[in-house]
C-alpha cells in the first residue's frame, strides 16, 4: 500500500513537472513575486522558532523542511 502510494506520488510529481512548462507568468509579470512577503520563507527565524515549539510538543516534524530538531527538545 505504501509502495503504491509512493509510486502514485512520484508519477504525480513527474506529470506536474511536465505540466508546469505552460504555467507561470512572463518575466515582466513578476512584480508581485518580487515582493519580500512572497518568498517561500520570508521570515526564517520565525519559522525556525515555531517549528522548534511544535517539534517539542507534537509527534510530527518535517515536511516544510527536514524532520527532527537538532536538539533533545522532544
Amino acid at each position: 500500500m505504501r509502495t503504491a502510494a509512493r509510486t502514485v506520488f512520484l508519477a504525480g510529481m513527474a506529470l506536474a513537472l511536465a505540466g508546469c512548462a505552460s504555467l507561470g507568468p512572463k518575466p515582466w509579470e513578476k512584480d508581485l513575486m518580487a515582493r519580500h512577503e512572497m518568498l517561500v520563507d520570508p521570515y526564517p527565524l520565525q519559522t525556525a522558532a515555531e517549528d522548534h515549539v511544535y517539534f517539542s510538543k507534537e509527534a510530527s516534524s518535517g515536511g516544510r523542511g527536514f524532520a527532527g530538531g537538532g536538539c533533545g527538545c522532544n
Partner: peptide
C-alpha cells in the same frame, strides 16, 4: 517542487522521508 502558477499565486509541494 515550487511553481509560480500565476502572477499572484505561488505553490510548493514537498515530500519528506526520515
Amino acid at each position: 517542487l515550487t511553481q509560480v502558477m500565476t502572477r499572484s499565486w505561488l505553490t510548493q509541494f514537498n515530500y519528506a522521508f526520515d
